[in-house]
Design a protein around this nucleic acid. Structure first.
Lengths: 159, 159
DNA sequence: CTCAATTGAATTGTGCGCAATATAAATTCT
DNA sequence: AGAATTTATATTGCGCACAATTCAATTGAG
C-alpha cells in the first residue's frame, strides 16, 4: 500500500519493523529461554526449576513474608506462585503458614533445608558468568539497561 | 578490551552474586514478561498470542517451510510448535501439508487470511516503541547486545 | 539389498504464566 | 452494627516450553 515519500519521516518502515531480527522483544524472549537452558543442568542438582530458584533467591534475602510481597518482587501473581510454593513446601524447602494477625495472609518462611540450600546455590552464578563469556562489569551494565527498559514497559502498563 | 586490568574480571563475592537485583537473568526474565503484558492487548485484536505472533512474523518473511525450519529460527522445538501450529491452522491462518518429497516433513504455508493479517500487524511495532519510551536507535543497540549475549549462551550449551 | 541408525514430527507429562473467577477476611461507610 | 467494598490467596482453564518417548520415513553401512 504505502510506498516511499510519506514514509520518509517515519523512524522505520513498517515492513522493516516487522522483521523478526529487528524485534528487541524477540531478542529478550529468546535470551530468556537461552538462560533457562543454561541454568537447567545447574539447578537440576539443587532440585529447583528456574522460577523456583528465583523464589529462593528472594527468600534468601528476606523470608517470613506474605505471598503478595514475593509476587511484587518477582512480578508474579498468586496464580503462578500458589502452586509453585506448594511444590517448594512439598520439597521441604519452605513453610506456608496463615498469619494470625491477618488470616488472609499466607507467610512464606524458609525451613532449615531451605536455608542450607543457599550454600549449594553459591556456585551457580559463577557458572552462568562463565557461560555468558562476559565480564561482571559488562553484564551489570547490560542488566541496568534492560531493567530500565522493563520499568518503562511496566510504567506504560499502568497508564 | 579489559583496560581496567585484573579488577574487571574479579568475580564478585558469592553473597552479592546471589542477590536477585544483581541477576541479569532475572532482568531478562522479568523484561520478557513485561513485553508480553504490553503486547497482549495489541495482539488480542489480531487474535494471536505472543508466541503465535512470532511464528507469523517468521512466516511473513518466508513460508512454505518445514516445522524444523521454523523451530530453528525461533529456538523452539516440535513439542512447542506442533500444538501452536494446529491452533493457527484452526484459526485459518496457516495450512499444514506433508511434503511429497519427504513424507516426514510438514510444510507450513500461509493462507490468504494469514497473509492479510500482516497489514493489521503493521501497527504493532509502533505501539511497542511508544510503550518502551526509547528511540529506535537505543532499542536496536540494546537488541544487538542482548542477541550477542544470547548467542554466547547458546554457544556454551553446544560445548 | 538389508538392517541399523538417523531424522522430522507428534505425543505425553510436568511446570510455569496469566486471565477470570471464587472465597473468606478485613476495612470502610453509612 | 450491618452492608458494601477492598484485599490476599486459591482455583480453573488455556497456552506455552521442554524433556522424554514414540513412530514412520529416509539414509547409510556392509
Amino acid at each position: 500500500m504505502d510506498s516511499m515519500g510519506i514514509m520518509a519521516r517515519k523512524p522505520m518502515a513498517a515492513d522493516q519493523a516487522l522483521r523478526l531480527d529487528n524485534q528487541i522483544c524477540f531478542a529478550v524472549y529468546s535470551t530468556a529461554h537461552a538462560f533457562n537452558r543454561v541454568y537447567k543442568p545447574l539447578l537440576d542438582r539443587l532440585g529447583l526449576t528456574y522460577p523456583q530458584y528465583l523464589v529462593m533467591l528472594a527468600l534468601w534475602e528476606r523470608d517470613d513474608v506474605p505471598v503478595k510481597d514475593l509476587g511484587e518482587r518477582l512480578f508474579l501473581d498468586s496464580g503462578t506462585l500458589t502452586p509453585l510454593l506448594k511444590r517448594l513446601e512439598a520439597a521441604q524447602l519452605i513453610r506456608r503458614t496463615r498469619s494470625t494477625e491477618d488470616e488472609r495472609v499466607v507467610l512464606i518462611a524458609l525451613t532449615p533445608q531451605g536455608h542450607a540450600l543457599r550454600e549449594k546455590a553459591k556456585a551457580v552464578p559463577q557458572s552462568i558468568l562463565a557461560a555468558s563469556d562476559c565480564t561482571v562489569g559488562e553484564l551489570l551494565a547490560m542488566k541496568d539497561e534492560i531493567v530500565a527498559l522493563r520499568d518503562r514497559l511496566n510504567a506504560a502498563l499502568g497508564e
